[in-house]
């Protein structure tokens, strides 16, 4: 699954723009991924300017 490192995240919305299933909720200083909707395509991981999105195994979720 995809996880966000909120320490690195700048809440800029690049991930939201490339998320085909619209699985990312972003507020001014908050971000959440809807794991039901997420298809693990990793578009957000690739496009994030800061490398704040990562594919992690279920156990490693931070």
């Amino acid at each position: 699954m995809i996880a966000v490192d909120r320490e690195l995240c700048d809440f800029c919305g690049t991930c939201v723009a490339v998320c085909q299933p619209d699985a990312i909720f972003l507020a001014e200083r908050d971000i959440r991924i809807d794991l039901e909707k997420c298809t693990d395509c990793e578009n957000c991981v690739i496009a994030c300017p800061l490398g704040a999105m990562r594919e992690v195994s279920d156990e490693d979720r931070f």
């Binding site: 690049t14 723009a17 490339v18 998320c19 619209d22 578009n43 496009a47 994030c48 300017p49």
Partner: peptide, 9 residues
């Protein structure tokens, strides 16, 4: 939604 080709990071 944008493709990776049509967005600049």
């Amino acid at each position: 939604a944008l493709s990776l080709h049509n967005i600049e990071s």
